[in-house]
């Protein structure tokens, strides 16, 4: 099975992976939902945890909002057992959501409680994906407290990359590495015109390993609003990108998916004649 590790006691333990970004609105929650779904489609047992206490929306993106009875804070404060609070996905029995509390704030949980929670979860799941709040304050620190690995999501914008760099520094200081990178919402046409940072530009600055790239894709918006993961849609380019990232996360030796240029008719014609535009 994907990615299991042996604990000291010899019990097989899952990997705890935090998805974070620094800047808000770059696609952390969408990434968490789609990677969780893609990993569960492969047969892995996956828990996705919404650590954005007070501003929960992983449940909305996954279409599970109306099934919430207990939440993360209820578990931490002992009002509910973990099993009671975990919500099974609509389609995939291998996939569970631990929702955030909506009526509390970041101070409702501390780092040690998050570490204890992730220990419980990793005993039952192959992957525990934690959706971090934006920012560098207590909520972010709680979200990485129990992590084995950190995935940083950025968009190819100068401000988002700057914040991602800050996060990489904090993760190094907290010794929570290795951090790997997902570059989201790439617009190939803008990149080829030199009007958007390229993957290479971002990597040159951040100097961390690239887990994957996701193109700008309106199917993501449609899927997200419907509460369905884009990875179910075989026509969704972003969905295919998330499946590629899930493969790489699970340790499969596949290259980062290339994003076809949406205006690529000319390229295709040229390649018919055995030529390539550079």
């Amino acid at each position: 099975m994907d990615g299991k590790r042996l604990s000291v006691s010899g019990v097989i333990m899952g990997r705890v992976i935090t998805v974070t970004s620094g800047k808000g609105g770059v696609g952390k929650t969408t990434t968490t939902a789609n990677l969780g779904t893609a990993l569960a489609m492969r047969g892995a047992r996956v828990a996705v945890v919404d650590a954005d206490i007070g501003l929960r929306n992983l449940d909305v993106v996954m279409g599970l909002e109306n099934r919430i009875v207990y939440d993360l804070v209820d578990v931490v404060e002992g009002r509910a057992r973990l099993r009671q609070a975990l919500i099974k996905d609509k389609r995939l029995p291998e996939l569970c959501l631990l929702p955030a509390a909506q009526t509390r704030d970041k101070d409702a949980v501390n780092a040690q409680q998050m570490i204890d929670l992730t220990q419980q979860l990793r005993a039952e799941f192959d992957f525990v994906l934690i959706d971090s709040p934006a920012g560098i304050e207590a909520g972010f620190r709680n979200a990485i407290a129990g992590a084995d690995e950190v995935i940083i999501v950025t968009t190819p914008e100068v401000s988002a990359v700057r914040d991602a760099d800050r996060i990489v520094g904090l993760i190094e200081a907290a010794e929570k590495g290795p951090a790997s990178l997902i570059i989201n919402r790439i617009k190939p046409r803008l990149v080829s015109r030199g009007e958007m940072l390229s993957v290479e530009d971002v990597l040159e600055l951040l100097a961390i390993s690239l887990l994957g790239i996701v193109p700008e894709d309106e199917t993501i918006v449609i899927a997200t609003n419907r509460g369905e993961a884009a990875v179910y849609d075989p026509n969704s380019l972003a969905g295919r990108a998330y499946i590629n990232i899930a493969q790489r996360l699970a340790g499969e030796d596949v290259p980062v998916m290339a994003i076809p240029d949406q205006q690529g008719v000319l390229d295709r014609l040229l390649s018919l004649f055995g030529r390539r535009r550079t």
């Binding site: 800050r166 990489v168 520094g169 904090l170």
Partner: peptide, 24 residues
């Protein structure tokens, strides 16, 4: 090392850094 956004290196004497100084 790489000096990343938000990090400050401060010293009374000279400083030699082998690595990048990122914006911020």
């Amino acid at each position: 090392r790489t000096l990343r956004s938000g990090q400050v290196l401060r010293h009374t004497g000279h400083i030699t850094l082998i690595g990048d100084v990122n914006p911020g």
